[in-house]
Design a binder for these strands. Structure first.
Lengths: 158, 158
DNA sequence: AGAGTGCGTTCATCTACTGAACTCACTCGG
DNA sequence: CCGAGTGAGTTCAGTAGATGAACGCACTCT
């Protein structure tokens, strides 16, 4: 399928879409909540085509979301670890979780839940304004030009 | 492309992926931040294929993310409006924005920013634990079985 | 009458994802 | 030392989603 690429798009949403818009990408990233993962493991758990998994992992490593680490040299065998960037992406996944659980299941809701690893307490995430801690009112948002540092505004003309 | 569908998957992330994993979907939804939109408008702004846009809008209406409303009868003309579900999806988009702006641009960052519609104040979103208001530590999360209400556990056997 | 607008549909082309089979390097059990 | 097993891919044919350009149609405007 011929796809319009967004990786150079000026909009942050578009760039993120380009990154995660490959089929399987969010689901592959989800798997790393539990720790490092190996190819065979992922392939069996996800029942994804081997070719597709190879490509996903390659791209995610290129993008710096995952790190490929050799855990034994003879024969060479690998594990994939999350990087800081990959960890940051979990914000997106957590909010997708919340949206899915609120809107994409029937009355009963999903059979799975996000929990605190230690206490077992069920976690629900919310999206807030970082400055105030208040939940966002999306209708109060708009997109605008980012403030350009003054140096950039200097004219070439004397 | 033959795709594995996730719309019946038990995982909320997978279902959300199915919904937004069609190419263009998040970008189409983004457009509705400003208000209702019409077909021609969207097509021109996004430079998306008309066939693709038709399909996206159809699916988003089916899914209840958008509502198609006739704004004149002769000839019939339509506008698409966000529903409550579509508005809720903006949580996901806002966090994608944040991830993109933090990780997918160079030193300068993007030329666009999310702002408060009235005050013009730049908004950065954060993902927090709804109960405590504390930022999430993703490494402290795990997936677990949702608690089943007792009524469901009753046996059919007397 | 002719141009313009809004909202599509159709079609050929391109290419991403799928599943199954195959490869290759090594290890292990007997 | 032989044959089965494992880990991490690659190859390949088949399927179907995305693309751009062209076409259709109902109406309005001048």
């Amino acid at each position: 399928m011929k796809r319009t690429r967004f990786d150079d798009n000026p909009c942050p949403i578009a760039r993120t879409t380009d990154l995660m818009g490959d089929w399987w990408t969010p689901i592959v990233m989800r798997e790393f909540l539990v720790g490092p993962r190996r190819f065979e493991q992922l392939q069996k758990r996800l029942e994804v085509s081997r070719a597709t998994l190879t490509q996903r992992l390659e791209r995610l490593v290129e993008e710096g979301m995952l790190e490929k680490r050799e855990y034994q040299p003879h024969p060479p065998r690998f594990e994939y670890h999350m990087t800081a960037k990959g960890l940051a992406f979990w914000d997106v996944l957590a909010v997708m979780w919340r949206f899915g659980e609120d809107w994409l299941f029937g009355e009963e809701g999903p059979m799975v839940a996000l929990k605190d690893r230690e206490s077992g307490r069920r976690i629900k995430v919310a999206v807030v304004d970082e400055a105030t801690g208040e939940p966002l009112d999306m209708r109060a948002l708009r997109m605008g030009r980012a403030v350009v540092p003054p140096s950039v505004v200097v004219t070439t003309d004397a």
